[in-house]
Design a binder for these strands. Structure first.
Lengths: 195, 195
DNA sequence: GTCTATAGCTTGATAGAC
DNA sequence: GTCTATCAAGCTATAGAC
């Protein structure tokens, strides 16, 4: 059967997510209108509702996708064997993954408050799973005497905040290469927890 | 002269700032309406415009006040003499100051994108002044051989991100006292940069 | 699958009474 | 100094034509 003229169903859906991610990261969820997203995609506002039930679900889908990709990417990562190797793998992975997705990262940290309670709880559960990965490494290393960490939960939060902070200032093609940034941060992480 | 009934000019202004700060921190600038702020203060929406020219200026005033208080508070802080003492003073001060102002801190990091360009530039200039304080300490310590920091700018960003991160999880009356949190973070900071 | 048109509200900000 | 009333604009989401 010939396709109807102007029919692009297979690609409009992903394009809506992409446009929404870019706009929300730049202006904030509440400030972005459905008309803007539609304009960016090249359709009329009403057509968006063929792909998403409402604006809230759009935000939730973006954040869930980001967290699920994060967890899946860590699963696929070569991790090393000793706690020290695992900590280095985690630090470098965290920087690399988040630098590659600045918009999604920004949204995941800034727009939690715009999630309805049930959606918020689901995203927080995913985030906790990710934090538990790092805390597990710190616990193992502490038990083995490789790390000296008086409180693993607190160290987890401190290190993740430090590593995610790269996104606030790093610019592609800037003064420092990503590899150099990774190395310097890894050195700070290592020294902050070393036994 | 007798005051007109229902006249509270001296206190309504500050109350508008306080209500706006609380609401914007909780819901985001774009999601907060002038009517909400007015309701919180106990006046009608139109009355707000006796105290502020518009919504944008309200946001700018909140952020400027926060940054100016931050710089003034550091000026008034006892700082120690050696770079190590100064770094400890800075780390503890940063945690203490920001934990005491969670709403203003949140707004200052989340709502930069909702500032108009000119206002954004002014807030960024104040933020840079604050970052320069920490970088100055790191530079002095590096020159003296007390710290080993391959890149002072990068270390500045890393440490500030780590310290500000306390605000995302710390809760008054929780598992750890503020003093204990300060001490653990200071230890991580110290070890991350020590020579 | 997308469009046009629009219902039904809410928004920031202003004018004028008191 | 505050209120009531209101404006023009913009919002999400839906209905129905094609």
């Amino acid at each position: 059967m010939a396709r109807k003229s102007g029919s692009h169903g297979e690609i409009t859906g992903p394009r809506i997510l992409a446009a929404a991610e870019r706009l929300i990261a730049r202006k904030g969820f509440a400030a972005v209108t459905m008309r803007e997203i539609a304009r960016e995609v090249g359709v009329q506002a009403g057509a968006l509702y063929l792909y998403i039930p409402d604006k809230q679900t759009l935000l939730f889908d973006l954040m869930r996708r980001h967290m699920e990709e994060l967890l899946a990417a860590w699963e696929a990562e070569p991790k090393g064997e000793t706690p020290l190797e695992q900590l280095e793998a985690f630090a470098r992975f965290h920087i690399r993954f988040h630098l590659a997705r600045p918009d999604a990262t920004f949204i995941s940290y800034m727009e939690l408050r715009n999630l309805e309670p049930e959606n918020f709880a689901r995203i927080e559960a995913l985030r906790k799973r990710y934090e538990d990965i790092l805390e597990g490494i710190l616990k193992e290393g502490s038990a083995a005497g490789v790390f000296r960490v008086p409180d693993t939960k607190l160290a987890t939060m401190a290190l993740i905040a430090m590593l995610t902070g790269v996104n606030t200032w790093y610019r592609e093609g800037g003064r420092l290469s990503r590899e150099r940034v990774e190395r310097i941060y890894w050195n700070m992480v290592r020294r902050a927890v070393k036994g």
